[in-house]
Amino acid sequence: MGKIMTRMGDGFPVEMSENQLRGDLAAGTEDAADRGKISPLSKEELQYLFDIFNSPYRFVSTEPGKEVVLSYDAAPIKLMRAAVNVHRIQSLQIHEKLLGADTIELGHIDYSFKPVKPIVGTEQTVLEQTLLVTHAPLFYGAMPNLGLYRQPDGPFPNPSELMQLGKIDEARQSYEMAVEDAVKDIVYVSSAMYDSGADGINMDTTGAAGDADFLAGLKAAEILKQKYPDICIELGMAGEFVLGLHGELTYHGDRLAGMYAHDQVKMAEKAGVTIFGPVVNSKSSRSCPWNLSRAITFIKACCEVANIPIHVNMGMGVGGVPMTAHPPVDITSRASKAMVELCRLDGL
């Protein structure tokens, strides 16, 4: 029996037998089904995944007609990170004309709403100039990033420190105060960008600081939608389930902590979010077949209940893509094809 070349979750190559590959695909979906209390992939879907991994080709793709919208988050920041010396506006022109971006997104290097607030006027001017020379729909993107509202970066007592001292009520109060401040900042910056002509606002990596972070994103989305009924809001997540750092925060009566993608999207819909971006973390110590099978199981459950478009996150270390700065095309193309076709996605 021949060996199949694939990769581990950290991107390094590994050879697997057919049985090992099938075993990892089955274990991945079972892990997701068990954690998310959702259906595992069917035999046919697992066979479909097996065939993709068993393909002798370096690069695979979706069938014609099954292509989806590709949105790039934080695009100019990625060129900066690569030390490519172009202005953000030029970067976005490169993305829409040369890199196949269906949407583009302007963001500040800090990529959080809070630090953008005091320089919002400068950001608006850049956005307005970008709109003059670009064609694709333009998002302004940033993270709610509740970590910036705790001491020493912000005004409120550090909940991690309080929790370690057993001061649970005080920690929770700190989170609750941070939510209120973050919502104000998100609404302020987003309103400015929308008033300047942005096509949409992307709240990226929501939930990075736990359930309070997710709540801030939802509340801000709700306020923005009431203020601007036509606004497009994309809400992207940070992890596969909402970390319960507060533990008791609710949105419209539902506890946010512990929610997986199929429940998160219902909250996003209630908040008036236009496009939802679920995340499933890749485990670097498991194989890519295990990770992809697992990720597809979570995302498929989310797509099945969603009434709004789903743009799944498939960057470094998420959505079955390995945790490495330069994910290889063999595994990224396999993840792309499989995720799009099995989940009936609307976008990436």
Partner: peptide, 27 residues
């Protein structure tokens, strides 16, 4: 990496009608 997605499953942006389809999702 994102280019891999663009070629594997993206609509093609301004080379095709990807930006226009995206606008319908957004609006």
């Amino acid at each position: 990496m994102a280019v891999s997605h663009a070629i594997a499953s993206g609509m093609g942006g301004m080379r095709t009608a990807g930006d226009l389809v995206a606008r319908m999702q957004m609006t």
